[in-house]
């Protein structure tokens, strides 16, 4: 059985190499934190949940089955943690209108300064689109985040959320319909 990069790292961690865990954490931190932050929309809570996620991941790593893709397994742990948090704190996750915090935290590395007006417009649309993602209801938002932020396939999302693939697909279509409507309403998509 050939192992992917994540699995090689896990083998090293299980063999006692601490640096490999650091490497694994660095590799997935951005996507995990991005997902959690956009779901809970509170920086302190997101930091705490991300820390808890990595601590839990380390402690259950010996239960990982190498036959499955690591990201699907790990993201399911993350998904369940967020769900638990949401159940305990429903007020945190509801759609909010004020998303001013998001642009402040945008990753400067991902900003590409383009000279042409067309590219600037595209960039603005991209940023605005992602700020609107935070406003759609959580059950749709989580799927958008899994699909586009964590780059998961429909089948993997279905595996994580324990929903049928058809439901995942329909819900994602519905989510995009919502986003399109919101962007049209705000005059961003013309």
């Amino acid at each position: 059985m050939s192992l992917d990069d994540d699995q090689v790292l896990i083998q090293k961690i299980l063999a006692g190499k601490r640096a490999s865990f650091e490497e694994l954490m660095k590799k997935h931190n951005k996507r995990i934190f991005g997902y959690i932050y956009r779901m809970v929309r509170d920086e302190d809570v997101a930091i705490e949940l991300t820390q808890d996620f990595f601590l839990k991941l380390y402690h259950v790593l010996d239960k990982y089955n190498f036959e499955y893709k690591f990201t699907t397994w790990a993201y399911r742990i993350c998904y369940n943690m967020v769900i638990d948090h949401v159940r305990k704190n429903p007020a945190h996750i509801e759609s909010l209108e004020n998303d001013t915090i998001i642009p402040k935290l945008m990753d400067s590395e991902n900003y590409v300064k383009e000279d042409t007006l067309d590219d600037l417009v595209k960039e603005e649309i991209r940023e605005y689109t992602w700020s609107v993602v935070n406003r759609i209801p959580p059950k749709f938002r989580e799927l958008i985040l899994m699909r586009y932020l964590q780059e998961l396939k429909y089948e993997e999302i279905a595996d994580i959320t324990q929903l049928p693939v058809g439901t995942v697909k329909n819900r994602l279509f519905k989510a995009k319909e919502m986003l399109k409507t919101e962007l049209e309403k705000d005059g961003v998509l013309k």
């Binding site: 951005k30 934190f33 991005g34 930091i47 998001i102 945008m106 990753d107 991902n110 689109t129 992602w130």
Partner: peptide, 10 residues
């Protein structure tokens, strides 16, 4: 736009 996510630096 969705295909190029705006990541948040942890």
């Amino acid at each position: 736009s969705l295909g190029e996510p705006v990541y948040i630096t942890p």
